[in-house]
Amino acid sequence: MGIFNGLMGNASEVNLESIRKEYDNILAPTEKIEKAYKLVRDMFVFTDKRLILVDKQGVTGKKTEYHSIPYRSITHFSIETSGHFDLDAELKIWISGTALPIEKQFNSSLNVYELQKVLAEYCLR
């Protein structure tokens, strides 16, 4: 079901131990990963300092773009929980200087409230 959810545009939570070494080279010395979510090949990683959007490009996915968004740049965010007929949860994040939000969808097994707590903890400092 994981690959099906990815193809349908839903992200699912990733085990942090499995990605720490892979992303260690882009983290600041005192930065730590709090949560990570994968969408087919792409990921978004929440650290204690920023949100990192990982975009694997091309057929092989060897070329990778890392887009860092400091939490202080996030002006507001919203979550939408899944329902009886709509099984997807949704996250929207607005960045200062942009009109449209970054939108991500999650499968129903994700606890979207945990994700909201991570954003609230770091954005509301």
Rank of each mutant, 00 (worst) to 15 (best):
residue 58 G to C: 04
residue 86 D to N: 02
residue 103 E to I: 14
residue 107 N to H: 01
residue 108 S to V: 02
residue 31 E to H: 04
residue 80 E to W: 00
residue 58 G to Y: 05
residue 69 I to W: 00
residue 113 Y to V: 11
residue 91 L to H: 08
residue 24 D to S: 12
residue 83 G to T: 06
residue 70 P to M: 05
residue 56 K to F: 07
residue 15 N to F: 13
residue 93 I to N: 03
residue 56 K to D: 05
residue 34 E to R: 13
residue 83 G to S: 11
residue 101 P to Q: 08
residue 116 Q to A: 15
residue 120 A to I: 06
residue 71 Y to S: 07
residue 40 V to S: 11
residue 13 E to Q: 15
residue 72 R to M: 09
residue 115 L to D: 07
residue 60 T to N: 03
residue 1 M to F: 11
residue 76 H to S: 10
residue 118 V to N: 11
residue 24 D to M: 06
residue 107 N to K: 00
residue 78 S to Y: 04
residue 16 L to N: 13
residue 117 K to E: 15
residue 51 L to V: 08
residue 12 S to I: 13
residue 60 T to C: 02
residue 100 L to K: 14
residue 42 D to F: 01
residue 62 K to V: 03
residue 93 I to A: 06
residue 56 K to S: 09
residue 101 P to H: 10
residue 96 S to C: 11
residue 93 I to Q: 02
residue 28 A to H: 10
residue 71 Y to D: 01
residue 50 R to H: 03
residue 100 L to Q: 14
residue 2 G to F: 09
residue 57 Q to Y: 00
residue 49 K to N: 07
residue 73 S to E: 15
residue 110 L to G: 01
residue 36 A to T: 13
residue 14 V to I: 15
residue 82 S to W: 01
residue 10 N to S: 11
residue 97 G to W: 02
residue 29 P to T: 10
residue 42 D to G: 02
residue 89 A to Y: 04
residue 21 K to W: 08
residue 89 A to F: 07
residue 114 E to I: 06
residue 112 V to C: 09
residue 40 V to T: 09
residue 112 V to L: 14
residue 36 A to H: 14
residue 110 L to Y: 07
residue 10 N to V: 05
residue 114 E to T: 10
residue 30 T to P: 02
residue 97 G to Y: 01
residue 1 M to Y: 07
residue 82 S to I: 00
residue 86 D to P: 00
residue 87 L to R: 01
residue 57 Q to K: 06
residue 13 E to D: 15
residue 18 S to L: 12
residue 66 Y to C: 00
residue 61 G to S: 11
residue 84 H to S: 09
residue 66 Y to F: 11
residue 25 N to G: 03
residue 100 L to T: 11
residue 3 I to E: 12
residue 38 K to A: 13
residue 8 M to E: 14
residue 38 K to V: 12
residue 98 T to L: 05
residue 10 N to A: 13
residue 72 R to K: 14
residue 100 L to C: 05
residue 32 K to Y: 11
residue 111 N to R: 14
residue 62 K to C: 01
residue 11 A to V: 08
residue 66 Y to L: 01
residue 96 S to V: 13
residue 117 K to N: 15
residue 50 R to S: 05
residue 102 I to K: 09
residue 63 K to E: 02
residue 105 Q to A: 08
residue 109 S to K: 09
residue 98 T to G: 00
residue 95 I to W: 03
residue 15 N to R: 15
residue 85 F to G: 05
residue 33 I to T: 08
residue 110 L to A: 09
residue 18 S to R: 11
residue 49 K to C: 05
residue 122 Y to A: 09
residue 45 V to T: 07
residue 95 I to D: 05
residue 74 I to L: 13
residue 34 E to N: 08
residue 20 R to E: 12
residue 115 L to F: 10
residue 40 V to M: 13
residue 78 S to T: 14
residue 106 F to Q: 06
residue 98 T to M: 06
residue 6 G to M: 11
residue 115 L to W: 04
residue 72 R to Q: 10
residue 107 N to Q: 01
residue 97 G to C: 03
residue 103 E to P: 03
residue 70 P to G: 09
residue 67 H to W: 00
residue 73 S to L: 15
residue 9 G to Q: 15
residue 61 G to H: 08
residue 46 F to W: 08
residue 23 Y to T: 03
residue 32 K to N: 12
residue 117 K to H: 15
residue 26 I to H: 03
residue 44 F to Q: 01
residue 80 E to A: 05
residue 113 Y to E: 12
residue 102 I to F: 09
residue 98 T to E: 08
residue 8 M to H: 12
residue 26 I to D: 01
residue 117 K to M: 13
residue 82 S to E: 03
residue 10 N to H: 11
